[in-house]
Design a binder for these strands. Sequence first.
DNA 1: ATCCTCCCCTAC
DNA 2: TAAGGTAGGGGAGGAT
Length: 790
Amino acid sequence: GDYRVLDEGPRQKVLKFDDERGMTQASPDARRGYKEQTDNSFYTSQFKSSTTGPSQSLSQFAEETQTPSKHSVPLAANEQQKPADRCRSPITSPESYLCRSIESQGVVTPTGRDTQNHKVMGPPEQRRAVVNAGSPSPAAEPAKEMTSEEHNAWLLSDPRLRKSSTANPVFLKQFYSESRLHHLSTWKANLKSAMQRLAAEKGLTQKRFKKKPGARGYIMHVDFDSFFCAVSLKKHPEYADKPTAVAHSSGPGSEIASCNYPARKFGVKNGMWMKRAAELCPDLKVLPYDFPAYEKASRLFYDSILSIGGVVQSVSVDEALIDATAVVYSTSDSQGIGIDEGNVWREQEKADEVATRLRESIKTKTGCDVSVGIGGNILQAKVALRRAKPAGQFQLKPESVLDIVGELTVEQLPGVSHSIGGKLEELGIKFVKDVRGVSKERLAGALGPKTSEKLSDYARGIDQTEVGEQPPRKSVSAEVNMKIMRRCLDAPLDPAKHLGHGRCDTFNKSATFGVATHNSETIGKEAVAILRSFKLSPGDLRGLGVQMTKLEPIKAQQARPTQSSQRTLNFGPFVGPSSAKKSSRTEAIDDIESPQKPKQSPGHGIDADPIADDPLTPRKPKIHPAMALSKAAQEDAKANTPLNVSGTQFILPSNPDPAVISELPNDIRSRLMGQRSRQSPAPEVPRSEGPASMATALPSQIDADVFNALPDDMKAEVLATYGRRPAVPQSPRRDQHPVQPRKQTTPTKHGGIRSIFGKAQRQRDAQTGVVQTNFRALRPGSESPMVEEI
DNA sequence: ATCCTCCCCTAC
DNA sequence: TAAGGTAGGGGAGGAT
Ligand SMILES: Nc1ccn([C@H]2C[C@H](O)[C@@H](COP(=O)(O)OP(=O)(O)OP(=O)(O)O)O2)c(=O)n1
Ligand SMILES: [Mg+2]
């Protein structure tokens, strides 16, 4: 849906996207999702514009949340229960939200699912899929060959499967509310904002202690041991000494979020599939998630950490960095310079003491163990942390840095995992110390300049990164990604065989508008256009997402057109563009019969907004998931009634100053733009839906078609922004034809499910203070038609 | 050289 | 059943 800057902290802007409103339908008996339960909490709500003064406490923001109580269940060694049976086991008992039936919510229409997906993007005959013979059989085994659409329809005929698809209106909500990784990301974003805010508030009164270059530093890396598992175990203390893990179920495809140290002795690891874990550890106990409890523990954790008085950087909900250098110096008065052994010793003692107190404090408050690594920089603290765990602390002292770091394997360094580790192995590098013997050139040849430099620094214990110095972000992006269906139920659980269809491919593409917009219709429309450009058969779709980048803060003056200069008055980037008309309308994604349908015919320039004026497809559209994004905010059309200037003639100068155009009222500008469009016919661009108009003035990274699809005021703003430096149009849309997969992947962990639209660029120039972004749909009402149509 | 797009990789 | 999200660093290769 639409998104707005809700809170402007000193260095961050927070946008909210309320998915439980936007993506779900109120369902009286649906269990309240976690996010709802904690909607007022510190971790999920951002800061309400803080009337509170500067603070070193997080808890004052906290509100208690409630956690549904769940029960643990021993994991049967050969876990082959039938699903129905499993539902009766404690962890997935009917009382549990895990098995809470949603089939009775009455929103799913019993018919039409075979046509529903049919028309989404292309004729089904575009792709034919051979159904794997070993595929599931919700009903009877269907014909062996069918289109992917038919196959999907067949799958959807099983109510259980339907529940795990967008045919279930609360699927997304439920999915996210139970996605640990989603929570992790959300928590992290909020904590980052919080730390920055606290730092800024603190900065008003005291300036940051600045260590002299070369002086000793004392960095602490603090991290809960087995965080989820330890917290969940508090409600099941009888398992504390037994191998235990937190997961959604004991089924073989469930992923272990966290396991305790007894389980690790068996080789069980976080992120491991239950199937594997059960093989390694047949007696593994499985506990349910308790997200609210994780939040509470985290708050107490950060309260303790903030009370130390150092510079704090949040790494995760259970993990933080502290630059305690100033705290440590306060007792040595050496300022970390010189080699007075007494001073060094006093500093190190102080650091250890601070860490010990911190661990005790957190243990007392939360009942859970943390470990602390202390080092001269972030890298060293992290290395020390490994040696500190579990329930301990370790200070990596300068004289032992080279030895200890050198004995690590490269993959124990932060930032090095399988891929980079594999490349290094090809270079004969296994241990960190081996890196030191390889020439910079060779390293850079394999890894690139930055990565190789960082690695050689790490190999020598060097890390210049400063705690808390997250450079103010120049751009932020957020992404909603959803999977339509994950797995055929009784397909072999080997993830390589999901759906019996082998691999998935990923497709990413970005489009640059050239000017910031929060208009969901514009964004959604372009997203759909991109989706269409792939010409995928919808039945083949396994997931999709949309990402926005180059976010800008809404400047207060821009947001209120009435009170400011002419320029902002007419031209605030977030002032509703001419899409601000009365009717809410959108284009159905399945409108493929007329892909060339001109959004604006050449002779039809008055109502020049190609988006707002595109009439709603009259037939009831089957809303594709992607449409949720553009549908959600349609009622946005409320501002800006255009002036009636219909009788007026405007002559557009042949070479108008874009800055002048941009100052015009929207409606007048619209007319000018339309006129100009007619005057200068498009250069050859594919997918052109009308006059390509100003393509010749566009910077090359802006696709002409994208430009043409923008509301006119945005067009003008783009021109004003870029017009001064003429550029030749380039990069027309590339994907006129069905795209070829760029890469073959397996639908395993990092396979096809990731974003289908692109990670777009990282913008480098940093004029804004935008730092953290979340999304929230603003208009609860807008989802009801969407849901109906699903 | 630097930017841009489209990725890949990593971390929690 | 299961809930495989998301941000940021950065490389490859083409355009400017
Ligand atoms: N693949 C993963 C890794 C982590 N987490 C979650 C659960 C973890 O409890 C929490 C913190 O991650 P850590 O890497 O700190 O792991 P733990 O705290 O569980 O164990 P430890 O820190 O003792 O190694 O993040 C997860 O859901 N999935
Ligand atoms: Mg941890």
